[in-house]
Simulated scan of single mutants.
Amino acid sequence: MEIVTEAGAYRPGYFEHLRTPDLSTGTYSIPAGGTDEQSPHTEDEIYVVTAGRARFRTPDRTVDVAAGTVIFVPAHEPHRFVDITEDLVTLVFFGPAEDTRKPAPVSEQP
């Protein structure tokens, strides 16, 4: 067992708390009026909104989010938080761990 400390505490940006090969989790926070600059991920992802208010946008849907909202985003789906009206705090879970499916960089040939 491991206790994850400071999970869900507001701290601008993304802070990873735990990583195993099959799962990673962190806290993602965006200030009111801020911009979500993230790109699609190579892993499935779950957001649990613990504080704040915003809208969540994918190519097919936009929904209001607040504390208690749980969102599943499949790998590679474009998504972002928009219209952030209150400091937003989310717990984020990646399965498998974030960036484990990302292709390895191609090394330059001499």
Rank of each mutant, 00 (worst) to 15 (best):
E2W: 15
E2T: 15
I3Q: 14
T5M: 14
T5A: 13
A7F: 15
A7G: 12
A7D: 10
A7E: 13
G8R: 00
A9C: 14
Y10D: 03
P12H: 00
Y14S: 01
F15N: 13
F15H: 14
E16H: 12
E16C: 14
E16Q: 10
H17Y: 07
L18P: 14
R19A: 07
T20K: 06
T20P: 12
P21I: 12
D22Y: 12
L23M: 11
L23I: 15
S24G: 09
S24L: 05
T25Y: 08
T25W: 11
G26W: 06
T27G: 00
S29C: 03
A32W: 05
G33Q: 06
E37G: 04
E37Y: 05
Q38E: 10
Q38L: 14
P40H: 13
P40G: 09
T42C: 03
E43F: 08
D44M: 02
D44Q: 02
Y47M: 01
V48C: 09
V48F: 12
V48L: 13
A51R: 09
A51L: 06
A51C: 04
G52H: 08
G52P: 10
R53K: 08
R53N: 06
R53Y: 01
R55N: 05
R55P: 00
T58M: 02
D60K: 15
R61D: 12
T62R: 08
A66V: 09
A66D: 03
A67Q: 13
A67E: 08
G68E: 10
V70K: 09
V70R: 06
I71S: 02
I71G: 00
F72D: 04
F72Y: 10
F72G: 03
V73H: 02
V73T: 06
P74I: 01
P74A: 00
P74M: 02
P74S: 00
A75K: 00
A75D: 01
E77V: 06
P78D: 08
H79Q: 07
H79F: 06
H79T: 02
F81Y: 05
D83E: 01
D83V: 00
D83P: 01
I84M: 04
E86G: 07
E86S: 11
D87W: 03
L88W: 09
L88N: 04
L88F: 12
L88V: 07
L91C: 04
V92S: 04
V92R: 09
F93W: 04
G95F: 11
G95Q: 13
P96T: 14
P96A: 05
P96D: 07
A97M: 09
E98H: 13
E98T: 12
E98P: 14
D99I: 11
T100N: 03
R101T: 07
R101A: 05
K102F: 15
P103Y: 01
V106C: 08
S107A: 11
E108F: 15
E108M: 14
Q109H: 15
